[in-house]
Amino acid sequence: MPIIIIAMVVLIILTLILYFKLRSGFMKSFQQLDKLDEVPQRYIAIVKCYNNDYIVEKEFQEGDFVGKIVGECPKCRNKLVIEAIFAQYTYRKR
């Protein structure tokens, strides 16, 4: 009789360990969702001279777009244009 009780207790403990170790269903998915929430941290615009002699990265401003002329090149006085815009991402908990 005591052997059966001990075996049952061991079985219950093992089951509980397995449950918490390999938690399935929506609890585990919530943890994964927290990790997966990727949000843009900052937007960067790559500004380039038409003559390709000057390139600089700047913070994106409202109204910027690829192909927008944003000034004069400090080296050759040609036009500076936004060549590309991209976002830097970070992971955030919801």
Partner: peptide, 23 residues
């Protein structure tokens, strides 16, 4: 549902980019 939620989350983020005019 877990897969769908993960696929739908970026939709909300996408609106920010579109509104700001970011590619």
């Amino acid at each position: 549902m877990p897969q769908l939620v993960r696929e739908l989350m970026p939709y909300s983020r996408a609106i920010d980019g579109i509104i700001r005019g970011v590619p």
